[in-house]
């Protein structure tokens, strides 16, 4: 058995496999299907300071090897999370991480401050890359100044591991990554979804209620891999790679590209046990290649 443990800016993980926000609920939804404690980290559904109803139905469209969604951050708000959901998840023995969103830097900071008070939440992931909301979200994540302003505000209010999730819908993702690193991010995760559209030719209508949505699934993997490779070479902080990972081979490719850990998203919808299969498969790869630990392959792709 290879050593699968990784350390992401102080966050100790038993293996490098995490679930991507919005694809695994609060973990509880999957508790009957997979042993949650075998997963390195669970990033729960995007949480905002105030409750949000999200966008109207329809919110998804399947695409070739992927899907579009425009959920729009439906959640019951940070206070509800702290009071009702946190007690249900605080004793799950893995890293339970909250994904935080907001409309303004102050929103993000206030929400992060509430989560900061929860003992068993060792990290947050800042979502500055949601393509499905009118205000906030990707509006911050697509400019260096916007991204840095949110990270600075949250850094003042939040004292544990701060991961910032980056948008791929930009010209230079490395510039954004550098900006959030300089503003105080402990790690970056990428990629969030790619903006896309689906059209129903027979009805001559756009399928999604707000017209556009975020593309995820295996279809986005090559784009994600390229961006992770670029960012890992640009920044000093650890990089968490995601985007279309559904097999251990996919995960290893992201590690080789420079990711210190990976997240699995849409594949959870297809196979609820995919996370533990990928963790096992990473171990098999390491053994097969005579590697003692995950860290040996991080960024180890030939130049």
């Amino acid at each position: 058995m290879a050593d699968l443990r990784v350390n992401i800016a102080g966050l100790q993980m038993k293996n490098p496999v995490m679930t991507a926000s919005g694809t695994f609920g609060y973990g509880l939804e999957y508790a009957d299907l997979v042993n949650l404690e075998d997963i390195g980290g669970i990033i729960v559904k995007g949480t905002t300071l105030h409750p949000r109803q999200g966008n109207p139905y329809p919110r998804m469209a399947e695409t070739a090897m992927g899907m579009l969604n425009c959920v729009g951050l439906q959640n019951k708000g940070a206070a509800y999370f702290c009071e009702h959901i946190y007690p249900q998840i605080k004793d799950i023995r893995t890293n339970m991480i909250v994904n935080v969103s907001g409309n303004t830097p102050e929103d993000y900071a206030d929400c992060a401050a509430l989560i900061d008070g929860l003992d068993n939440i060792p990290a947050i992931e800042l979502n500055i890359s949601c393509p499905n909301v009118k205000h906030g979200g990707m509006a911050f994540g697509t400019s260096c100044e916007g991204a840095a302003s949110v990270v600075r505000a949250v850094r003042r209010a939040y004292h544990k591991t701060l991961i910032v999730k980056l948008s791929p819908n930009v010209t230079s993702v490395s510039d954004i990554a550098l900006a959030v690193q300089d503003a105080g991010a402990d790690a970056v995760s990428l990629i969030n979804t790619l903006m896309g559209m689906a059209i129903d030719a027979e009805r001559r209508k756009r399928v999604l209620s707000i017209g556009t949505g975020g593309l995820s699934g295996p279809a986005v993997k090559p784009v994600a891999l390229r961006m992770v490779y670029e960012v890992a070479r640009a920044v000093q902080v650890p990089v968490i790679g995601l985007g279309g990972i559904s097999t251990a081979t996919d995960a290893v490719e992201f590690l080789l590209a420079g990711a210190s850990a990976i997240q699995i998203g849409t594949a959870n919808f297809v196979d609820p046990t995919v996370t533990v299969k990928v963790a096992q498969g990473i171990n098999d790869y390491l053994e097969r290649h005579g590697c003692a630990s995950v860290s040996e392959i991080v960024g180890a792709v030939d130049q």
Binding site: G22, T23, F24, G25, E29, Y30, L33, K45, G54, P56, Y57, P58, R59, M60, A61, E62, M67, N69, V71, Q74, T266, N268, F269, P272
Partner: peptide, 17 residues
């Protein structure tokens, strides 16, 4: 029969008001 992805209450795609 709203369009859904996960079927487990995680993706929040199949919502009805």
């Amino acid at each position: 029969e709203n369009m859904m992805a996960c079927g487990l209450g995680a993706c929040l795609c199949c919502v009805e008001d």
